[in-house]
Design a protein around this nucleic acid. Structure first.
Lengths: 118, 118
DNA sequence: GGAAGTACGTACTTTAAAGTAAGTAACTAA
DNA sequence: TTAGTTACTTACTTTAAAGTACGTACTTCC
C-alpha cells in the first residue's frame, strides 16, 4: 500500500534516497552495473577515469551497505572481487529513467541561463 | 523521442538533476509548493524550522534559475513575494514518487539471498 | 522621528565531502 | 629474493556547502 506523505516526511524520505545516490561517483558506478553487468574493482577503476582507489572503495562500501549493490569475494591470490546490482538496486533504474524523462521535458526557456548544450 | 544514454551520459544527466534538487533545504521547499500551493517567503520561513534567511533566499533563487519554481513580486510596501511550482517543476512530482516507491520496496535486510557459498 | 513589517544581501566562520599520497596483505612467478 | 598482482586502508590536505550574524530598503503607523 502506498504510504501517506506530508511535505515533511516526503522531503525527508527523498532526501534519504538522495543521500544513498548522491556524490561525485555513485551514479557513474551504478550506471556501469545497471542491466546485470558485473564488474571487478579494477574494471571500475578503468571505467571511471579520475576516481581514486579510496573513493572507489568508499562508495562501493556505502552502496553495498545500502543494499543497492552486491559484493562477491573470490578467495584467490591475487584477490578477485566482483560487484553487481542487487535486485532492488536494479529496480532503481526505471525511477532514474523517470527523472531523465522529466529533465528532457524541460522547456527551452530563452531567458534561462543555459541548460545543457555544448 | 527518448534520448539514447551510455553509462557516462546517463550518470552525468542524473547528476545534473540531483544538483538541482539536492542540498539540505531544496526538497522541503519543493514539497511545500507541490500541488499548486503558493507560499510567501515568510510562509516558507515559518514552515521550515531551522532554515536561515540566507539559505532560504539562496535556494529559492537557484530553484527559480533552474525553472522549477516561479517567483511573483508584488510592488507593495512592505514587500510581498509569492513562490509556486512551475508547470515543469510540478511534473517532477511523479518522478519523485517513483523514487519513494522504490525506497518502500527495499527488502528488509535480514539475510540477503545467499547464493555464494563454497 | 522612532519602531515595525517584509524580503532580502554580505562578510565571515564552521563542517563535511572529496582529493592526494602513501602503505598493506597475501600469494605467485622468475 | 625480489618484483608483480589485486583490492583495498590510513593519514593528511584541500575545497565547497552550510551556518552565523548582521546590514539594507522602503513605507506606514503611532
Amino acid at each position: 500500500m502506498a504510504k501517506a506523505y506530508t511535505p515533511v516526511t516526503a522531503a525527508s524520505d527523498v532526501e534519504t534516497i538522495f543521500k544513498m545516490l548522491e556524490g561525485r561517483w555513485k551514479l557513474i558506478i551504478l550506471f556501469h552495473l545497471f542491466g546485470g553487468k558485473v564488474q571487478r574493482y579494477s574494471d571500475l577503476e578503468k571505467l571511471i577515469p579520475g576516481i581514486s582507489q579510496k573513493m572507489l572503495a568508499q562508495q562501493l562500501r556505502q552502496l553495498e551497505a545500502d543494499g543497492i549493490i552486491e559484493r562477491k569475494v573470490y578467495p584467490v591470490v591475487p584477490p578477485k572481487v566482483e560487484y553487481s546490482m542487487s535486485e532492488w538496486g536494479q529496480s532503481l533504474c526505471p525511477a532514474l529513467d523517470a527523472l531523465l524523462k522529466w529533465a528532457e521535458a524541460r522547456p527551452k526557456d530563452s531567458a534561462l541561463p543555459d541548460t545543457n548544450n555544448q
